Simulated scan of single mutants.
Amino acid sequence: MTAAGDLQNLLSALLIWTWFKSCLSEEAENTTAYYDNETVSSDFYDDMPVLCVKQSNRNFQRWFIPIFYSIICLLGLAGNLLVILTVFYFKRLRNMTDVYLLNLSFADLLFALSLPFWAANSLSQWVLGLALCKAMHAIYKISFYSSMFLLSFISIDRYFAISKAVSAHRYRSQAVLFSKVSSAVIWVMALVFSIPEIVYTNINNGSCSPFSSNTDTLRVSLQASQIVLAFLLPLLVMSVCYSSIIRTLCQARSFERNKAIKVILAVVVVFLASQVPYNVVLFLTTVVTGNGGTINCDYDNNLLYATDVTQCVAFLRCCLNPFVYAFIGVKFRHDLLKLLKDNGCMSQEMFYRCTFRRRSSAGLDTETTTTISPKLLITSPKDT
């Protein structure tokens, strides 16, 4: 019985081992068949998504953005402070453009003051708290929208002052009041349009940003709204107004005409050169975000480089506006020189030397940019 029991136990163990081995063999065959059907091997790993490395762009941002933001900030502070001091020192709020220029200088000044914080944000993690993060973004966005709207209103004012000089002359007494009210409305509109981004601004991955990783739909909506409100709308208004102004000036028989046309062209060229590249890149970025991103890492990195460069070019407007819209006017330049002389920044001899060279161009004594004497337009017959 013992020998028979041992033999039975041995046969049972062999049967169990045979069954277990056959199961292992079948599992291995199924596994091989599964991977063969899915074309694994090297092709499987080739199809796996590859992480897009953006370290080179971060290194570029660490030196490019602080340098250019600092330059723009210093130039913007200097130019806009000179405009503000000149306006208040000589009490130059005598027409609509003076009021709009003062508000434009305040908007650009606030914009320039926010740039050092953005430069610090690109260098390291944001450590100043959520409240200051939202405040910085609010100042940046409100000043951005208000400056774009003010540029549109300046072009509208120049349109009525030149193309509609006769009718505009009748309402000259109410013009300053209207400009003050419209400026207040512009600031309110800028605040309203900035509210969505201010609300969603947060500290994401150590950086102060208006967008988080799960708000692609919101990001597309806000960027599309910015393109329409802060670029296409001002571009449309400026195109209509300045094209009409140029047609009017071409019909005027005055030696001021060529200078005024050059000023208008300078205004348009500066706006287009600074705003078009950035908004084109912003549009492409919005399209990529709306499509759920891109698998082309090179294209994604190139968009980041283009955004950094074109954004800095667009930000140059805050330091160019004082020269294009204010200092190009002869009277404004004269007031600026007198301000420098009265405060000891310029000698009496230098002041008379600079002003003497401009006395020969007294006929071009414009209040502000693109302004031409309404009398010349009223009395000058149109070419037929």
Rank of each mutant, 00 (worst) to 15 (best):
A3K: 06
A3Y: 08
G5P: 03
L7F: 09
N9Y: 00
W17G: 00
K21R: 11
K21L: 11
E29V: 08
Y34L: 13
V40F: 13
F44G: 11
D47A: 10
V50L: 14
C52N: 14
V53C: 14
V53A: 11
N57L: 10
W63K: 10
F64A: 00
F64M: 09
I65W: 02
P66N: 06
I72M: 07
A78T: 01
A78R: 10
L81H: 01
N103E: 04
W118A: 01
W118Y: 10
S122T: 13
S122D: 15
S124G: 12
S143F: 00
Y145I: 03
M148G: 14
M148A: 15
I154A: 03
S155M: 15
D157V: 06
R158S: 10
F160E: 13
I162N: 07
A165F: 02
H169I: 05
Y171G: 03
R172T: 02
S173R: 11
S173N: 06
S173M: 06
Q174L: 04
F178L: 15
A190H: 05
A190W: 07
F193I: 14
N204K: 04
N205Y: 06
S213G: 00
V220P: 14
S221F: 09
L222S: 09
A224Y: 05
V228F: 14
L229H: 03
F231P: 00
L233R: 01
L233Q: 05
L236T: 15
S243C: 11
I246N: 04
T248L: 00
A252G: 10
F255A: 09
V263M: 15
I264W: 01
V269S: 13
S274C: 15
Y278T: 04
L282H: 01
T294V: 06
C297G: 08
D298V: 03
T310M: 08
R317S: 01
P322D: 01
F323E: 04
R333T: 11
H334W: 03
L336W: 08
L337G: 08
L337R: 08
K338E: 01
L339Q: 10
K341D: 00
Q348K: 12
F351Y: 15
F356G: 04
R357M: 07
S360V: 04
T366S: 13
I372G: 07
K382Q: 08
K382G: 07
T384Q: 13
